[in-house]
Simulated assay, not measured.
Amino acid sequence: MKSRISTSPIGAGLGAGTAARPLPHELIGRLPPEAYRHCVLGVEQTAALLNFSVPQLRRFYREKKMPTPLRLGERKLGWKLGVLIDYLQAVERGEWTPTPEPADISMPGSEETAA
């Protein structure tokens, strides 16, 4: 049976005179550096960037040995690329210290009033 998976590049076969669209990684190179510092990487991408396995990455963030992840959904975590770059540079210089957990913020009216 013949495979239906295309191995041609994106934009191939669009017809004569039709310009192919740039690939996402080509577009990233055109962005100013401050733009992609805000890109969010998932667990697998972050592990690959840091050269960790996924279990090692999870252990590091649970033990607070790396920046705290953003909660992207009920079960999805991510890190901003800029935060990870800063983390790698600080570790390389020997200056990284864990960020303290955010203080608990009590909701107005949640304090018990003394009678």
Rank of each mutant, 00 (worst) to 15 (best):
A35V: 15
L23S: 14
E63D: 12
V43S: 10
E74K: 00
S110M: 00
A47P: 05
E26S: 01
P55C: 03
H38T: 15
L27T: 04
R21M: 09
R4W: 14
F60R: 03
I105K: 04
K2H: 15
P100C: 12
F52T: 01
R93M: 02
L77H: 06
P100Q: 10
P108C: 06
L23W: 12
A114S: 08
K76Y: 02
G82T: 10
T113G: 10
P24V: 11
L50M: 07
P9C: 12
Q89H: 08
M1F: 14
A20N: 07
E44H: 12
E74A: 06
R4V: 11
L27E: 04
H25C: 05
M66Q: 06
L57I: 10
Y61Q: 07
E112H: 11
R4D: 15
S53Q: 08
G73S: 15
K64T: 13
F52A: 01
A12K: 04
V40A: 01
Q45G: 04
E26Y: 00
R37E: 13
K64N: 13
G17Y: 07
T68L: 06
M66H: 06
G94W: 03
L14D: 05
H38W: 10
K76W: 01
I10V: 13
G13K: 02
T18F: 14
A47V: 11
T97L: 05
L49M: 09
V54S: 03
I10Y: 09
S110W: 00
E34L: 09
P98M: 04
A48V: 02
L23A: 15
P102W: 02
P22K: 01
M1V: 12
P98G: 12
T99F: 00
Y36L: 10
G17A: 07
E34W: 04
K2L: 15
I5A: 15
Y61L: 03
A90C: 01
H38P: 00
T68C: 08
R71K: 07
G17R: 05
R59G: 13
K76F: 03
V83W: 03
A48D: 05
A90W: 00
T7H: 12
G11S: 08
T18L: 12
P100D: 14
E92M: 00
R62V: 12
D86S: 10
R21P: 09
K80C: 04
V83H: 10
M107H: 05
S53W: 01
M107N: 06
L14R: 13
L49R: 07
A35I: 12
G109Q: 04
Q56D: 08
R93K: 05
L88D: 03
K2I: 11
D86K: 03
E44R: 14
T7V: 10
G109K: 01
E74S: 04
E112W: 10
T46K: 06
T99C: 02
I5L: 14
P98N: 08
I85D: 05
I105L: 09
A115K: 03
M1Q: 13
T68Y: 02
H38M: 11
R75A: 14
P108M: 05
T99D: 09
W79A: 04
S106L: 09
A20H: 08
T99N: 03
L88W: 02
S53E: 11
A103D: 07
E63L: 07
R37T: 11
E63I: 00
Q56T: 12
R62H: 05
R71W: 00
M1W: 12
E112R: 14
K80P: 01
I5D: 14
I105T: 11
